[in-house]
Design a protein around this nucleic acid. Structure first.
Length: 269
DNA sequence: AAGGATCCCAACCGCAGCACA
DNA sequence: GTGTGCTGCGGTTGGGATCCT
């Protein structure tokens, strides 16, 4: 006796959603809210599996979704997040307002993967495909990807490997992502795991922020700021420049110094 | 114009984690 | 501690769109 199927497949539609089905789902969720996906199809009068309804809502119908092409900034952010998190698409999506894990996963597989391969970068490890070619790799990639701390999740999350590729270039283009350079000797010298051998980089993520603005990358950057996340834009905890009189331009990468990562989304076990 | 190849993305599937009884 | 149900995640697939010859 295995687990019961998530729905009765004999009486459910599959494949592309119709406009009518979309409308039903939207109106039902507007009236009753998200959740209870298993019972939702019946309650909403949909001949769909609950999982299918959830996917359709999350990936396509949610009102806070940003449609359209990815920007260059989003590209770079995805690459950096992927170098840190691996294929944790939901976590990556959590840092890109209005983007879904499915969307980012597809974009990675169809665009970024190829882009990195063309540059001689292994998309799985974010390292040069051939070390001998290391010195001739694209400068931009060097700056945006390899030059920062590379944390490989290739084997497992618990075996995260932190490697400092180039001490001197940490600050190059990293202000966008909040990497602190020479002032942060601990991270900068790649001794994070030495100092914190038990550090578990598994991350958790909160539901999407419905009110999160989506019009510019600055908002993404702002969402990375611990201070702003706490509503402390005017305090010293804000390092993203959102502060009224702020001149601060950088923050510690994993939030180890000033808490870049939203505290709700980072768990250290 | 045709048809084969390739790209792209919405949707599906199976599994893991969590909550709860 | 164990079993069950639900939710969420990541990998994969199917088929429409587009490109190429």
């Amino acid at each position: 006796m295995g687990r019961s199927p998530c729905c009765e497949k004999a009486h459910t539609n599959k494949g592309a959603w119709t406009k009518e089905e979309d409308d039903r789902l939207i109106s039902y969720i507007h009236a009753h809210g998200e959740g209870s996906w298993r019972s939702l199809p019946k309650a909403a009068g949909l001949l769909r599996c609950g999982k299918s309804c959830r996917l359709r809502w999350i990936n396509y119908l949610r009102p806070d979704l940003k449609r359209g092409n990815f920007t260059q900034d989003e590209d770079e952010l995805i690459i950096k997040l992927h170098s840190l998190l691996g294929n944790k698409w939901s976590l990556i999506a959590g840092r890109l307002a209005g983007r879904t894990d499915n969307e980012i996963k597809n974009y990675w597989n169809t665009h970024i993967r190829r882009k990195l391969l063309n540059r001689g970068i292994d998309p799985a490890t974010h390292r040069p495909l051939n070390d001998a070619d290391n010195h001739v790799q694209d400068q931009e990639v060097q700056a945006s990807v390899a030059a920062t701390n590379t944390i490989s999740f290739a084997s497992s999350a618990s075996a995260a490997i932190v490697k400092q590729e180039q001490d001197t270039s940490i600050t190059s283009k990293s202000s966008m992502f909040g990497v602190v350079g020479e002032n942060n000797s601990e991270v900068g010298k790649g001794i994070l795991l030495e100092r914190c051998p038990d550090l578990n980089l598994e991350l958790t993520i909160s539901p999407p922020r419905l009110n999160e603005p989506d019009e510019s990358f600055k908002n993404i950057e702002r969402s990375l700021c611990f201070g702003c996340s706490l509503g402390l834009q005017n305090s010293n905890h804000c390092n993203c420049g959102n502060r009224n009189n702020s001149t601060a331009t950088s923050y510690d990468f994993l939030g180890l110094k000033t808490g870049v990562w939203d505290y709700r989304r980072l768990e250290m076990k």
